[in-house]
Amino acid sequence: MDNLTIKETSYIPTIILDSIKGVFSIKGKSYPENTFEVYQPVQKWIKEYFSTTSNINTIINFELTYLNSSSLKVYFDMFDMLELAVENGKFVEVNWFYESDDDIIEEIGEELQEEFHTISIKLIPHN
């Protein structure tokens, strides 16, 4: 399975999905006007990855500084996929990086932890 890379713009984060290493990285700001269209290939890729990969572990690094509500919806849907992967015996580790004084992104991380408690989600502040 090929890796998927999406280049960062002002309103789309850098997205790198590496199927061999089993490492996904999403970094930047997300507030496109057509969120579902933008993320459609990402969701399709992740779905295919979990149904075909022989990797036991998958690590996902989120390093977002801003996301709009429709992006949040997309990330919730993505976490649904992760939850399903965990149910199917995969190990998924999420690192949720946030700027140490960014209450909004920290709080989203906390909400994800509460909502998806079968997934290991670490909140990691940085400067």
Binding site: E33, T35, N68, S69, S70, L72, K73, F76, D80, E111
Partner: peptide, 29 residues
């Protein structure tokens, strides 16, 4: 917050360009 989470986990108010939750997000902040 609970309403926002409920809407984010369902597709109730989702349309082709958004999740229909912007105003809840505004109120929350």
């Amino acid at each position: 917050k609970a309403l926002l989470r409920q809407k984010l986990r369902s597709a109730e108010d989702t349309h082709d360009r958004g999740a229909g939750v912007g105003l809840i997000e505004v109120a929350k902040i």
